[in-house]
Design a protein around this nucleic acid. Sequence first.
DNA 1: CTGGTTGCAAAATTTTTGCACTGGT
DNA 2: ACCAGTGCAAAAATTTTGCAACCAG
Lengths: 143, 143
Amino acid sequence: MTSYVTLLKESGLKATFQRLHIVEVVDRYGHIGIEGIYDKVTKIHPSLSVATIYKNIIIMVEKGVLVEVPIAGKKSKYELSKLDHMHLICTQCGEVEDLPCIESIDKIFDSLMQKEHFKLFRQQINLYGVCSHCQQLSCQPVD
Amino acid sequence: MTSYVTLLKESGLKATFQRLHIVEVVDRYGHIGIEGIYDKVTKIHPSLSVATIYKNIIIMVEKGVLVEVPIAGKKSKYELSKLDHMHLICTQCGEVEDLPCIESIDKIFDSLMQKEHFKLFRQQINLYGVCSHCQQLSCQPVD
DNA sequence: CTGGTTGCAAAATTTTTGCACTGGT
DNA sequence: ACCAGTGCAAAAATTTTGCAACCAG
């Protein structure tokens, strides 16, 4: 909990209760959308307004605390900034799983970017399919 | 033009003028959002309604004619379905450039998916950065 | 001819904004 | 105490929906 305070302050943001709750929920759930954040946070902090979430998502993405994960056919989810990684996105249940990045892929990108004269800031690898869980039982879509 | 007719019909969609115009604009511009489509198409077919675009985007994505390209911090763009490829997304000017997929990367994914027991349908690789053009001159954001 | 498609207008949803008030530092 | 940050309510923007008229096959 105290580490979230540090995270926010080091990013130049006041550590308000609202922000701490938002960050904590994002961290706990890994990948979550605006609505999900609202649902979770209002359970323990009922007065939180959606406007505050929107304002904070915007500024926290700007400051690099959060990262937007845009997903085809759905609304974006958000995650805490962390080491580059890939996303396995289950189109059945909507679950998003992190997968560590592969070094060999990074190297390929590096040489490719040199060739293209493109200054790479961030990579985003999303793999859409059906997770092992949903291949076995018939899952209900979560969102 | 006639090939768009074929494309639509083979996908089980009637080849209306509206659809032909939408597909043609998407093809011509490569990657374009709802608003862009509306702007371009209404220039030559002023009566087109946005509702029609929305309805058609949804069904055309469903039928596999179009593919949604979700982009962090912006609205999704759409492209014609084509061979798997990566996207170079310039965060300055908003331009999206296609880059052919790398076979060696695909192979890495394949073995990875086996290990994870994940049934892969579609991959999406977006590389965000600054294109060579914007590195030279100061560009105006396009959208 | 006929079912799928369109356009319009209204509704629903999502996101943004302005401003008085509050709370972190 | 100061100013960033909050909550509310209103506005703007985006997306969806229902339905009568229309048109591609």
